[in-house]
């Protein structure tokens, strides 16, 4: 199958931009959005390239993951405090940049040198044919993997009753301390206002 050059280059440029934004932007809200866009663009690239089944699965997975992360981390108390609880980027980010740059150089140079070595066939079979007729067990294994992953995630991420009680106690203590702090500040402010007026008369 011949892949459209314009479509490929447009989606590839958007994909690289979204991936770069996902790993550089400091706020999780934006970097997570960029990552969701990058995952969706991989699906779009698959569809543009003609791999419709892979593209649809990738788009579905990207949508489900984005919704799961958004619902868990952006709205739900107390998990919405995870993202701002630490700096986004490490102080030794340059080590990561050097390693990633080395890998990028290695890939680009080796692929460019072996550009003529790629075998290009003449026909393309359909993925559905393979999964349905030649490797039906693949579908079964994938289904088992998904069910296991969801079960493990729920098992790990669940909140037991004593943890909920602990969270409630923590939240109440935090609110109590906040009230005490505000009251103290109000008292100090009131004392500061009343001091010049009620000061000693000469």
């Amino acid at each position: 199958m011949t892949v459209s050059g314009a479509g490929f280059y447009i989606v590839a440029a958007l994909l690289l931009a979204a991936t770069a934004a996902a790993v550089v932007l400091p706020r999780f809200r934006y970097s997570g959005g960029a990552a969701a866009a990058a995952l969706a663009l991989v699906g779009l690239l698959a569809i543009v390239s003609g791999a419709y089944a892979v593209g649809v699965v990738q788009l579905l997975v990207a949508g489900i993951l984005a919704a799961t992360f958004a619902l868990t981390l952006l709205r739900r108390e107390p998990y919405c405090r995870i993202a701002p609880s630490s700096p986004a980027t490490s102080r030794r980010w340059w080590i990561g940049a050097a390693v990633a740059g080395g890998f990028a150089l290695l890939f680009v140079v080796s692929f460019a040198l072996s550009a003529d070595g790629f075998h290009v066939g003449s026909t393309v079979a359909q993925l559905i044919t393979v999964l349905h007729y030649r490797a039906p067990y693949a579908m079964v294994i994938a289904t088992v993997l998904v069910v296991t992953a969801i079960s493990v995630a729920l098992l790990l991420g669940r909140t037991s009753e004593d943890e909920r009680e602990l969270d409630r106690t923590e939240e109440e203590r935090r609110q109590r301390e906040e009230r005490v702090r505000r009251r103290r500040e109000d008292r100090l402010a009131a004392r500061g206002r009343s001091a010049p007026a009620g000061g000693p008369q000469e």
Binding site: L16, T19, A20, A22, V23, F28, A83, S85, S86, P87, A88, T89, S90, R92, W93, I95, G96, A97, V99, A100, G101, F103, A104, F107
Partner: peptide
Amino acid sequence: FALALYGVLARRN
């Protein structure tokens, strides 16, 4: 792959 590897190595969160 290289961009994502940078993210894995450089991100602290």
